[in-house]
Design a protein around this nucleic acid. Structure first.
Length: 569
RNA sequence: GCGCCCUUAGCUCAACGGAUAGAGCUCUGGUCUUCGGAACCAGUGAUGGGGGUUCGAUUCCCUCAGGGCGCACCA
């Protein structure tokens, strides 16, 4: 249990006793007052007032008067309908300091739970370009994996990649017809994506080409040797590109699933569904699951020509996942909100098939441009690699201006840390169900509510610690009475575990991003106003510990968002 | 037409049904003999309209307006 949690429970018990009348009060009812001058924790007496049929102010007054002095609480006073509690600041500060420093890199994590969760994200299609929309998925998925782990669950992160289907045929048709024998660029995966975009354009301009593409798709499905060969080779190009992107973003998967491995099982499974009476032939010849009585319309599971759909494959995928990971009790799919109806239909069908696992679609809004949706047809995709290069170049330029004596290698390394911070924070800073209107200028910003701002605070705190270490100090811990400004920072640090738990519970990394930004602001205030290295010996040792604790909070928080915390930048 | 999501400051975003609706960006004006100026301080300025529930609504319900996305062979 954390220090703050312990204190809240203690206060809740004392309040319940002080109010009397069999009132139950939970730790969660203790909140922060709007203004620190009012106190450090507050309790609103509204529910108790209702139960006891008294006015909230009356109860607050009585409760405050009856509240005993404790180790951690110095004062309880009534303010209107609230009981505001002021902590004994030196005692509280010392306890938080000890807690954060002893937990170190584990600060904010909950005890292990006996729950195994599969989280599926990272679902790009081969033969298509990776763009900033995929980036949001990767950042969100990664953060949710980290947060779920921090909340104590065991997590199995997996990907699911679309390596077969109409888009592959379209790409390969165009590649063979118009680009045979062309010299290959270094990034073959990206090259394929561009070919795909070109193919889309060509088919759009001349509808008669559709038949050619369809013919290619039939040949691919028939596994004609030369086409099969080309498929395998080009598929590898894309997968190599994906692997490189995953690696540079720190995305680690336990298992890569592919559409190609579940297509045949899916077709078989769907036929079984017909035998079981779950699926039937629809009026237009396709196989459907009629979900109208569940208000979910018609769910198509096989095309009328017998070829597979996304749903065909995913029905089989679900079985495969639970077979390979038997202990999974919950499965989260991180997929954009356009698939909401689809997932409801999928989950309902799986339920009808007898699946009793908890299935969750973690829907997020996608990334659009000011001009509207990104579309390969219009050629206004923001390719991930182009964006990444631009952010990195910008980060390097900024770093170089400040660090004239650094080697190229060090500049590159730091620039990437900052660029990654900017990209990931930018993708996570707002609620998943708000669309991100991508704007290159704000995406390239390193000031204000950004990843680099938080990283900068971390670097500044690190800098102070580094100078102390150089002077031979370990930042020894003292319990001496701290400054109010130290208390303020530690009070904020004490909130961190609750923030992590809440962000994990709601799958909202934005909650943590918001907190980290505010915490970085407070860190700024601290090292601006409070001398550390120049302070008297006792103050100095204790303040070094405060700096260490603050840095721990920033480092742990950034890590959960998948962002590295630089010592210098 | 039906369904889901969204609408808060000039722009981009916050706010378990609770106290004076907070930030960032932009703009204007300031801060440095101080551990790093990717910093700090100040000023300007907002809950789309109308009903309802509640002691109390940005938050919940209804309705209108506006935007986005789905809704039978794409993934």
């Amino acid at each position: 249990m954390t220090t703050l949690e312990h204190i809240k429970q203690e206060i809740a018990a004392h309040l319940a006793k002080a109010i009397g009348g069999d009132i139950k009060i939970t730790a969660a009812e203790l909140v922060r007052p709007p203004n620190p001058e009012m106190g450090d924790l507050a309790f609103g007496c509204f529910p108790a007032a209702k139960a006891l049929k008294k006015s909230p102010a009356e109860i607050a007054k009585a409760a405050a008067a009856a509240f005993p002095k404790t180790e951690f609480v110095r004062e309880a006073k009534a303010m209107g309908p609230y009981v505001n509690l002021t902590l004994d600041r030196p005692t509280f500060a010392a306890a938080v300091l000890r807690e954060v420093i002893s937990m170190g890199a584990k600060y904010g994590q909950s005890p292990k739970k006996k729950e195994r969760v599969m989280i599926e994200y990272a679902q790009p299609n081969t033969h298509k370009e990776v763009h900033v929309g995929h980036l949001r998925n990767l950042c969100l998925g990664l953060a949710v994996v980290n947060l779920t782990r921090a909340a104590g669950s065991e997590v199995v992160p997996v990907s699911y990649m679309g390596d077969i289907g109409a888009h592959v045929a379209k790409c390969l048709w165009c590649l063979k017809k118009f680009h045979a024998g062309e010299p290959m660029p270094e990034n073959k995966g990206k090259y394929l994506g561009q070919i795909y975009a070109e193919a889309t354009r060509r088919v759009e301009e001349d509808e008669s080409l559709k038949e050619e593409v369809a013919a290619v798709q039939r040949r691919l499905e028939a596994r004609e040797p030369d086409w099969d060969e080309l498929w395998k080779e080009t598929r590898r190009w894309s997968l190599d590109e994906f692997a490189a992107i995953f690696r540079e973003l720190g995305v680690e998967l336990e298992r890569d699933y592919f559409e190609s491995e579940v297509e045949e099982p899916g077709k078989k499974l769907v036929r079984d569904l017909v035998a079981k009476g779950i699926a039937e032939t629809g009026e237009k010849g396709a196989l459907i699951v009629n979900l109208e009585k569940h208000d979910l319309g018609i769910f198509l599971v096989l095309k009328s020509d017998g070829s597979s759909l996304y749903s065909t494959k995913e029905l089989a995928l679900a079985g495969l996942k639970f077979k390979e990971y038997p202990g999974i009790s919950k499965s989260i799919h991180v997929v954009d909100s356009r698939q909401s109806l689809y997932f409801q239909q999928l989950f309902k069908t799986l339920e009808l098939m007898g699946f009793d696992k908890k299935m969750v679609h973690l829907a997020y809004e996608f990334v659009t441009l000011k001009e509207g949706a990104m579309s390969s047809r219009k050629g206004n995709i923001i390719a991930y690699e182009d964006f990444r290069d631009e952010v990195k170049a910008r980060a390097k330029k900024e770093t170089k201006e400040r660090r004239t004596d650094w080697s190229e290698e060090r500049l590159d390394e730091t620039a990437w840390t900052i660029a990654e911070g900017a990209m990931k924070f930018g993708m996570l800073r707002q609620d998943p169900d708000k669309p991100i209107v991508f704007d290159i200028d704000s995406a390239l910003a390193f000031e204000g509510f950004t990843g680099p701002y938080v990283q900068y605070a971390h670097a500044r705190l690190s800098s102070i610690l580094r100078k102390a270490t150089e002077a031979g100090e370990g930042g020894q811990l003292f319990d001496g009475a701290g400054d109010e400004r130290e208390f303020t920072l530690l009070r904020a640090a004490a909130d961190f575990p609750e923030i992590v738990a809440s962000a994990a519970e709601h799958c909202k990394p934005s909650v943590l991003a918001q907190y980290l930004f505010e915490f970085a602001q407070q860190s700024n205030d601290f090292y601006r106003d409070v001398p550390v290295l120049a302070a008297e010996p006792d103050d100095r040792a204790r303040r070094l510990a405060v700096v260490r604790a603050a840095r721990t909070v920033l480092a742990c928080g950034l890590q959960l968002l998948g962002i590295r915390a630089p010592e210098e930048m």
